[in-house]
Amino acid sequence: MVRTVVERRRGHGVPQAAVALDDKGRALEAMLPEILKEFQPDMGAAVDLVVVTVKPRDVASVCRVAKESPQLAFDFLLCLSVVDYGERLQVVYHLYSTTRKHKMVVKADVLTEEARVPSVTPVWPGADWFEREGHDLYGVVFEGHPNMSPLLLYEGFEGFPGRRSYPFNEYTEW
């Protein structure tokens, strides 16, 4: 397949997606700093989501607070993703509350060389396979996970194919 090579334009000059929080999002944004005070979170927003960035070692505690605090009641883990930003990996938790119907994002940045995050499986057992997947494809170690064996890849697979450094899209004719 012939594809036009478009040089990636990074940094300045690129428009930023507009933030458009709804009422629930604004209410959440207002109450979060108080509830998560002890973790000193960085507050932010992405389009319609409230984003909270915390230190990696606090992730599990933040998640537990988010689940157990009655104002937040984030009982549902929507998604757990890992994003590779070169020198750092970002672990992203999308949370949702089935009772209050609001959602937020918890983020934690870890260094790629020593990517270690406490596991949230005690909080939501549903995080089990997400974390194994993150370990498989990105090499993030989720400490305290009961079984970190490969999920999508086979035993003994070398490398982390999810990372951007992994040669994947460079097709070669042969």
Partner: peptide, 20 residues
């Protein structure tokens, strides 16, 4: 698309799909 991130949810026959 502009720089940033979005999470879309939709109800699939099998459950909730999310695209981050």
């Amino acid at each position: 698309p502009p720089r940033g991130e979005a999470y879309a949810r939709a109800e699939n026959p099998r459950g909730e799909i999310g695209v981050y």
